[in-house]
Nucleic acid binder design. Structure first.
Lengths: 164, 164
DNA sequence: CAAGGCGTTCAATTTGTATTGAACACAATG
DNA sequence: CATTGTGTTCAATACAAATTGAACGCCTTG
């Protein structure tokens, strides 16, 4: 660690690895870190030059970050370029990124769960339940329980406060 | 939804998509779901046959699941194969999987953060602080705050109880 | 101790996805 | 209205990670 530029560089690398580990590419993390550690708002050109990434990627990534509320568009008078600065609301950002990550999947899983439950209930009433019905029922109940607890936790006031 | 086998099949597919979205392959989720919805302990051969995956993949995936405590090795007398049954402790499983997902990254990020902090502190004392020092300091403080809150949240009793 | 059954390993391959870059649309400017 | 400076799009590509399968080692059994 020799000078201030080193710090930024290493945080950029670390953030890149982090977002990559989460399944979003390296660029998103790097871009956010770069902007976060810049005193002035940054343009797409700044990003492509400093980070050595393509303009297309910069454009898409910035848009993604904007959607998560991680980055904010600012206008600078007399400038035609778009400039961005970092939002510091880490908790909210993580939240949105997480929803993006598992949102669709859990949604469809939810649908499958209720569909299965109703089918199973109906199938019981018919009077000719398959041999597995009880077993299935018990297993699905456990899933349902967990889903409910997780859902409750996710929306709990404590989480909202601490993880704001 | 026509019969009980349908349910299992669709849960297998859903679980596969879920683990894939999280960055672990499709197989891990499918295998767990298959075992979870099996009344009897399952062998590797069962898995390769039912799911149409290779023996190598089954072996590695099962080992991973075992490490997360998602699956338990059981012995059946007179059988030479290894059999596995599902653990239902979803919370604990998720916890371990999450640690695997972000553990290494956050660890090295932690190290980077403290290293940067000490460097910055030392650099202040030298009397010739770069122009950016204050800015850097403020930004790193925000990161530190978030890290501490996240850490506290992760280890909070509420999480431990609800997400057990 | 030979033979067959079983799980494991790892280099090769396949698959999925991030990234690129050329083409494009739009606005501002002269 | 041509030109220049922007950001966006998306098919092509490159890259990383998941998956395969043949080779291996270890038991067990006869």
């Amino acid at each position: 660690m020799n000078d201030a530029a080193d710090i930024r560089e290493r945080f950029v690398a670390a953030a890149g690895e982090f977002t990559q580990a989460l399944g979003y590419g390296r660029n998103i993390g790097q871009i956010y870190a770069h902007i976060y550690f810049s005193r002035d708002p940054q343009s797409l050109d700044n990003l492509t030059e400093s980070l050595g990434i393509s303009k297309g990627s910069a454009s898409m990534s910035v848009r993604q970050l904007e959607q998560w509320g991680a980055v904010k568009h600012v206008w600078i008078k007399g400038e035609r370029k778009d400039f961005y600065e970092a939002c510091e609301d880490f908790g909210r950002i993580m939240r949105k990124a997480l929803i993006d990550l598992v949102g669709r999947t859990t949604e469809s899983a939810d649908a499958l769960l209720t569909e299965s439950e109703t089918w199973l209930a109906a199938n019981r009433k018919t009077g000719r339940p398959p041999a597995d019905t009880d077993f299935l029922n018990e297993r699905m109940k456990k899933i349902r329980d967990f889903r409910n607890r997780a859902h409750y936790l996710w929306n709990s006031p404590l989480i909202r406060v601490l993880f704001k």
